[in-house]
């Protein structure tokens, strides 16, 4: 069995175990959980379908495009900013966004840009604004967007300098050995 298949099987086993334990502890609650789950499946089926189709078309269309040159190019900072912005604007539901990010990644985005897309989606997620305003109110939602954006910028800058320091550390022995060579 491949690693991917093992992962898929463990997800199914986790779901079955969760329901079994809930049924043992409180059988009445299981009915509510099943009803809520069916409603989730019904609600998300079309968005998931659309996202998987969008992911495939993004991969096939973006291969070799100018946008992929930014996400897969040598300028890491440009790729990170573009990836982070794109990730923040995707739908917050991972099933709707991950196929798209995977498509862009398969289309040639480098690992840093892909990670920036995943982080933008997880931490900023502009698509949560509507739910946030409706459920928690504009003040709390405004604070969420403002502070998560600030934190992403802070952590992103730290990662950039950390990556640069690692690069310098990698290159330093070569530079020193070249400098010590007799001319």
């Amino acid at each position: 069995m491949e690693t991917k298949e093992k992962i898929y099987l463990s997800i199914v086993i986790a779901a079955v175990l969760l329901y079994l334990v809930t049924w043992l502890l409180d059988p009445t609650r299981v009915k509510k959980c099943v009803a809520a789950s069916f409603s989730e499946v019904k609600k998300l089926f079309i968005p998931i379908l659309a996202a998987i189709f969008a992911g495939s078309v993004a991969k096939n269309l973006l291969l070799g495009s100018r946008f992929m040159k930014i996400l897969g190019g040598k300028s890491k900072l440009r790729g990170v900013v573009a990836g982070g912005t794109l990730g923040s604007l995707l739908p917050p539901c991972p099933y709707a966004s991950y196929p798209l990010i995977k498509g862009v990644s398969d289309g040639g985005a480098n690992s840093l840009s892909t990670m920036a897309m995943l982080l933008g989606l997880t931490s900023v997620a502009v698509g949560r604004v509507f739910a946030g305003i409706a459920i928690l109110g504009p003040e709390i939602e405004g604070l969420r967007i403002l502070f998560s954006f600030l934190a992403v910028m802070l952590v992103g800058t730290l990662c950039f300098y950390f990556d640069r320091a690692l690069e310098v550390k990698r290159r330093l022995p070569r530079v020193l050995s070249r400098a010590s060579e007799p001319k």
Partner: peptide
């Protein structure tokens, strides 16, 4: 995906 949605529902 369906299994994960069942976890979310619970």
């Amino acid at each position: 995906i369906i299994a994960a949605l069942f976890i979310a529902g619970a």
